[in-house]
């Protein structure tokens, strides 16, 4: 099962694992597949491994798109 929600890296251990926070619940994730990950990044974790970094700029862009569509609808 894929975990849709990104968590935030709050610490990185010397052994290559990181503590990832989901609204107060934390998991230990292996960061080996995401060597560029740093504290403060939002990441997608799957089967105990961080596999992707969340691009916040893109997330914001999508939210803006929703807003535009809303306007388009209301002008119908």
């Amino acid at each position: 099962m894929c975990l849709a929600v990104p968590g935030k890296i709050i610490s990185i251990e010397p052994n290559g694992t990181g503590k990832v926070d989901y609204m107060g619940t934390t998991v230990v994730a292996n960061l080996s597949l995401l060597p560029e990950a740093k504290v403060g990044d939002w990441v997608i974790v799957h089967a105990g491994f961080a596999i992707s970094r969340l691009d916040r700029q893109e997330a914001r862009r999508t939210l803006r798109l929703f807003k535009q569509l809303e306007k388009l609808n209301s002008s119908d």
Binding site: A4, V5, P6, G7, K8, Y22, M23, W42, L54, R56, A59, R60, L63, F66, L69, E70, L72, N73, D76
Partner: peptide
């Protein structure tokens, strides 16, 4: 998105009724 915004608030908007209705209408 402000600095204080958490992932929680982010995914709320991806689930919100308004967003869904908007997208369905566009489709």
């Amino acid at each position: 998105m402000t600095r204080r915004e958490t992932s929680a608030e982010l995914f709320e908007r991806f689930r919100s009724n308004l967003t869904i209705r908007t997208l369905l209408k566009a489709i």
